[in-house]
Design a protein around this nucleic acid. Structure first.
Length: 846
RNA sequence: GGGGCGAUGGCGGAAUUGGUAGACGCGUUGGUCUUAGGAACCAAUAUGGCAACAUGUGAAGGUUCGAGUCCUUUUCGCCCUACCA
């Protein structure tokens, strides 16, 4: 029998889809739309297994929705600006544009080989002028709306990448890409006023009921709303400072006040610019770093000033003012009031500097003599030792009451504080979207007129200069606007700006005058299903949510605020890791397994250390190249395998064995197909066997439900079940007249996962009509006969088969003749019988 | 420190949401056929036991006729986040 030739067949179908533009979509108001979007890739060179998994999941959904009759928008594009291109170009004397476009071509071909149902006519690339000119327009619009502004600010400076990073891009004090320890630098930067929408972005989360809670929680924490009040502490001492403002969530512990601490970057530090001791202290603080360990073990250290702060609720109390390493300038006002009794950090600090520790809250189970001793008490309780606050429940009523009193006396006011900071978007790099502004000799900002957009990146430039290559482009920098000579902004936009609106562009990819057309957005948006990695839980997803609000702000472009209605975050693809004796990483094809032992390939004297399975990464060499796999096993086999072993939201372990078995399954399906075809073509069809009707109905129902629930691994099991049933069925039966229609329905169910194979088989059977997703009949799902479990005291003892909806009496008649059950109940008192129709009959005996 | 998720055979994982635990695949074992097989096919496969049967979803308790599923306590593992005032 001829083997299934996946090379030819997959090529044939891919060509067919391309030639016929099978996945081209246009607005059709008679049909319900479905916008299926996977996070677009960065064109790094080749696709990796993570892409294969991501896009297979999306493709299964897109194809399924298409078969259901939806008008499916399933586009693909390229997140094409960014540093890897610039670095690669610099190191190899290339043009970043050429490098990027070469990669795009390679990866596009690879994606096509996966058989994805993409509308390639909508392909976009963020580094193209057609894309970024609209982005520049948005920037200017936001500038007009005052949602973009420029300020001098401390920034996170990545010394390796020579650029500024957003707060979100600093992980453990290191650059998210380079891993270099981030430095602090003061620079003029452009900011998006994302914090203006803090509350809205928080509230919006509640409506996203089809987002994973995990992601919503992460965003919630990132936005970090806290309720409290700001208090102005009067200060006295040798400096011209009258007061210091603090934010606190626990004003109710004010009577436990024993010091005031400010950040080393607090404005009052200006008075210590020449103080050597202070500078030494500041240096010390920066050394402590922000790594996990440093924070956990990190000592609380302080630098005492000669200032004294006065307790607003008890003006007779004066406490020292310190600079302290644990106070951050960019949260609240960069100053905290210390209450050692009820805050662990303050407690540690007070111990170290021998400051007073007052107890002002007692736990419910302790009396008024309760004293904080070994650690701070931060739990709930009753206020004590606090004059008018005594007896209030803390931290609920007590906080409200304190704020009321402070407001009455004009000493403070209620405040809601957010942790979310404005989004710094300036990057000192070449390969990004130019910021469309220029400056006059006084440093005033001038928007580039819209008629002069896009501000194009200069070509053929020297990337080897230190710092931003655009800075050294004299000709490019100079621009004349309204007869005035101005100097262009040389910073480019963070690439996260590009990905904040690409989903809108997909709706109108060829619209020349605007980023998108209202008509298109009204039809296609929001994205019905967004699929991607959880690593974008905060950055990209929060920025996109902000961007929708920003372009709607003040001129309601459309009434959609949330871009992604439903979000699915898929797990990573993992593989075992290998190291040789010298601890060098080895790739899977450099090793060989003999009798359960691993060796360097061809070298039995060189054992290999097998490490844990980790997500595939080039640095650990535990990667499998999708191109190689597709070439050897075919796209359908890879799609099948990548879905089969784990639920899509969890990590999956790559296994050569599993890959091979998926390949074999396709081969087995092919020989099954050949056999079925022979049976079908046999002319002497007589009878009907409704066993297959029932099975088909059941499996359609299972696969449909599992598709809806993203249980894609179970769908693969359902496919195996179908195979097992059919192979068994055709062995037992000869010429049936209902085999063909049932088999075709099953093939349609297979088609989202293995589209080339399923289409080939359907056409092989002469299928010409439009393919629709098969319907199932709920009534047919119920068997005429059901299994009833007979339990004795809740334990399964026997299973009997009986017609559906049989009543208790009918079952008892059968049991009467069942020796096993009779043995159990004879000579026993049957205390009770629990009967659940079509399920169980439980005897409770004594 | 804070938050979240999870724990089911040798392994990956199913389980209609309180009603036959272990679907499906991998692996393993035995067999058939083959020059051979790392191919194909057939059979077995939670554990103990010849068997009837007993035990069994991290551990302990509880609710219930009945618990992988609900409640309480607890252990372990993973992920995120962090001097956030």
């Amino acid at each position: 029998m001829s083997r299934y030739n996946f090379q030819d067949i997959e090529k044939k179908w891919q060509k067919y889809w391309e030639d016929n533009k099978s996945f081209k979509t246009v607005i059709n108001k008679k049909k319900k739309k479905f916008y299926c979007l996977e996070m677009f890739p960065y064109p790094s060179g080749k696709i990796h297994m993570g892409h294969v998994r991501n896009y297979t999941i999306g493709d299964v959904l897109a194809r399924y929705k298409g078969l259901l009759g939806f008008n499916v928008l399933h586009p693909m594009g390229w997140d094409a600006f960014g540093m890897p291109a610039e670095n690669a170009a610099r190191d190899n004397n290339l043009d970043p544009k050429v490098w990027t476009n070469t990669n795009i071509n390679t990866m596009k071909n690879q994606l096509k080989k996966l058989g994805l149902s993409i509308d390639w006519d909508r392909e976009i690339s963020t580094c193209s002028e057609e894309y970024y000119k609209h982005q520049q327009t948005f920037f200017l619009e936001l500038l007009e709306k005052k949602l973009v502004y420029r300020k001098e600010n401390y920034v996170n400076w990545d010394p390796v990448d020579q650029t500024v990073l957003a707060n979100e891009q600093v992980i453990d004090g290191k650059g998210w890409r380079s891993g270099a320890v981030v430095e602090r630098k003061k620079l003029n930067q452009w900011f998006f006023n994302i914090s203006k929408f803090s509350q809205e972005l928080l509230d919006g989360l509640d409506k996203l009921d089809k987002w994973p809670n995990k992601v919503k929680t992460m965003q919630k924490n990132w936005i970090g709303k806290s309720f409290g009040c700001e208090i102005e502490f009067k200060v006295k001492g040798d400096l011209p400072v009258d007061n210091i403002k603090c934010f606190t969530t626990r004003p109710d512990t004010l009577f436990g006040f024993s010091f005031l601490a400010v950040s080393v970057d607090h404005p009052i530090s200006n008075y210590f610019k020449d103080n050597k001791e202070f500078l030494k202290f500041k240096e010390e603080c920066s050394k402590t770093g922000t790594t996990e360990e440093a924070i956990a073990v990190g000592d609380k250290i302080g630098f005492k000033t000669n200032l004294e702060a006065i307790n607003p609720l008890d003006t007779s109390q004066k406490v020292p003012v310190y600079f302290a390493n644990f106070v951050l300038m960019d949260y609240g006002f960069g100053a905290v009031f210390g209450c050692p009794g009820h805050d662990q950090r303050d407690f540690d600090f007070a111990k170290k500097y021998k400051l007073q520790i007052k107890t002002v809250v007692r736990p419910y189970d302790k009396d008024e003599n309760f004293k904080v001793s070994n650690e701070a008490y931060a739990g709930p309780g009753i206020i004590i030792n606090s004059k008018f606050l005594n007896g209030y429940e803390a931290p609920t009523n007590s906080v409200i009451e304190t704020i009321k009193v402070l407001e009455e006396k004009n000493l403070g006011k209620k405040k809601i504080n957010f942790r979310l900071k404005d989004w710094g978007v300036s990057r000192q790099r070449y390969w990004g979207c130019p910021i469309p502004v220029a400056y006059d000799d006084k440093g005033q900002v001038h928007a580039i007129p819209k008629s002069m957009l896009p501000v194009k990146l200069p070509e053929k430039i020297n990337l080897k200069v230190k710092g931003n290559p655009l800075d050294s482009q004299k000709n490019w920098k100079e621009v004349i606007i309204d007869g005035k000579k101005l100097i262009r902004e040389t910073d480019t936009l963070d690439t996260f700006v590009c990905s904040s609106w690409y989903y809108l562009r997909f709706c109108s990819p060829n619209e020349n005058n605007h980023g998108f057309k209202k008509e298109d957005i009204d039809y296609w948006m929001p994205v019905d299903q967004y699929i991607g990695g959880v690593e974008h839980a905060i950055l990209h997803l929060l920025y996109s949510r902000f961007f929708m609000r920003a372009i709607n702000y003040e001129n309601n472009n459309f009434n959609i605020t949330e871009p992604f209605q439903s979000l699915f975050t898929q797990g990573m693809v993992c593989h075992e890791t290998y190291k040789d004796e010298k601890n060098n990483w080895l790739s899977p094809d450099e090793i060989e397994k003999i009798d359960n032992q691993f060796f360097v390939k061809g070298k039995l004297d060189k054992p290999v250390k097998v490490g844990p399975s980790e997500s595939m990464s080039k640095s650990k060499k535990n990667v499998i190249d999708p191109e190689f796999i597709i070439k050897n096993y075919g796209a359908d086999s890879v799609r099948l395998f990548i879905l089969s072993d784990s639920p899509p939201e969890k990590d999956v372990q790559w296994s050569e064995q599993g890959m091979i078995s998926s390949y074999k399954f396709i081969q087995k399906l092919w020989s099954l197909h050949k056999e079925i075809k022979i049976k079908i073509s046999n002319e002497n069809k007589e009878k009907q066997n409704n066993e297959i009707d029932k099975f088909t109905n059941q499996i359609i129902s299972k696969i449909t439900i599992n598709l809806e629930k993203f249980n894609y691994n179970v769908i693969i099991a359902n496919m195996y079940e179908s195979y097992n049933f059919l192979i068994d069925f055709i062995k037992k039966n000869k010429n049936l007249n209902n085999l063909e229609e049932n088999y075709k329905k099953i093939l349609v169910c297979f088609s989202p996962v293995i589209p080339h194979f399923a289409n080939e088989c359907l056409v092989d059977l002469g299928f010409k009509e439009n393919i629709d997703w098969p319907k199932y009949d709920k009534k047919l799902l119920d068997e005429e006969k059901v299994n009833i479990v007979i339990q004795i005291n809740g334990k399964k003892r026997e299973i009997i088969q009986i017609k559906k909806d049989a009543n208790e009496k009918e079952i008892l008649t059968i049991i009467k003749n069942n020796d096993k059950i009779q043995n159990f109940i004879k000579n026993k008192d049957v205390v009770k019988k629990v009967f659940v129709p079509n399920k169980i009959l439980n005897y409770i005996i004594k």
